[in-house]
Each structure stands twice: as C-alpha cells, then as structure tokens.
Amino acid sequence: MLNLTLKVWRQKGPKDAGQMVTYPAPGISPDMSFLEMLDVVNERMMEKDEEPIAFDHDCREGICGSCGTVVNGIAHGPRSATTACQLHMRSFKDGDTITVEPWRAKPFPVLKDLIVDRSAYDRIIAAGGFVSVNTGGCPDGNSLPIPKENAELSMDAAACIGCGACAAACPNASAMLFVSAKVSQLALLPQGQPERRDRVLKMVAQMDAEGFGGCTNIGECESACPKEIKLENIARLNRDFLVATVTKRPVTASQGGGA
C-alpha cells in the first residue's frame, strides 16, 4: 500500500479563482489506476462532507480522450504513451507527493477543478477535418486501392484521441500535433486529396483563431501524446500548408443552376 500526498488544483467555477489544495491519500493500492485513486480520495472526502474533486473521464481504457490532467508536471503523468486512466499507481512510490493540475492553455478554460473546455478541438475539426461525402452513393470499398504503407501511416495519425495533452504539454500551448494528425490522416489517403489544400488552410486558420500558440519544434507534444502521434505529421502539415498557400486559386466557377 502507498501513502501519498496530493496537491490538487481546486477551482469552483469558470470565473472563480483557483488554488492548489493538499490532501492526504493513505492506503492506495498499486493496482489502482490513477483515476481509481482519485475515486477513492473523493469517496473519503464526501464522507467528510467535502465536495469531491471534479475530473473528466469516461471510458477508462485510454481511447475516449476524456481524461487528462498534468501529473507531477507531465501531461497524463510519468508513464509514456499512457493516458491518465491507464496510468497505474505502481508508477509511484510510497511517500510521494503528487501534484495534479488541469490542462493549461487559453483555448482550454477551466470549468471546474481539473475539468477544462476543449471544444476548440471540435471546432478545428468542424473547420475542415473531414472528407465532404454525404451518406449514400459511395463507390465500392475496394475500388480505391490504397498502398498498405499509406494506410498504416494514415492509421498512425488517425489514432489521435483528441485529449488535448499536446497543447497542454507544449511550452507554447500549441495544438499543432492535434491538427497535423488529422491533416496527415486524410492527406495520406486518396479520399482526402480533393480537399487537401483547403483543409489545411482552414484548420490552421481555426487553430489560430482559437488562440493556440505556434509550434517551435520543441517536441514536448510528441512525448506527452498517449497515442504516440509523431512530429513528422507536423512536418507534413507545414509542407501541405506551404503548397496550399503557393498554389491557392480563388474559386471563380459560378454555381449555375440546372436547366
């Protein structure tokens, strides 16, 4: 059993000031996940009529992207390629003091305690992170052969869970890894080609409008990413952005009606 001390960011609401508060966390099993440890602490707090620590979580198997806190100064905690829900307490030692903070970025305002608003990421996808196909009338799945290597690289990028750790870990609070993952996934597939240039321009513009910082190629995002999204995706985004800027043509064709 581990006897720990937690230093947790508590903030009542979006407009309130917050502070770090210290809680003892004795008797923690090393088999617990980090979030189960928070559950235990919360249950004990509630028994003492203290409001529990609010944190986002859902699937608890590392895929939904809901959870995310900065644990001891590292987004999602010390274990690489691991979300907070999959981090287990055996990564800590008896007597440790653990600091737990929310993601910090202007586009991720704190809603309560460790919960932040990440809707900026949704809006970046809404700006261009898709292939514009309506339902129905699609060609046969095998009519479009895709080299296995491209399919694999595309899948590597598509593994992003949108948790926000990249922007949280970046000293500049830049969302480039997130944006580049979606740009890359679709740029590597033939389905993504028709909108390839527009997509990167719109997504980058939305990212900037949200107030994220710029990338200075430091690489903290890659280290923090629980899904091991690679920096090469950012290079691909930059390349696509350059090409799109240089070759961008204004749309001139008129939207004529049918006869």
Binding site: F130, V133, C138, G141, S154, M155, A158, Q185, G192
Partner: peptide, 8 residues
Amino acid sequence: QCVAQGVP
C-alpha cells in the same frame, strides 16, 4: 461509406 470518409 466509411471508406469514402477516409476511415483507415
């Protein structure tokens, strides 16, 4: 449908 959407 999913292939057309770019599901890898």
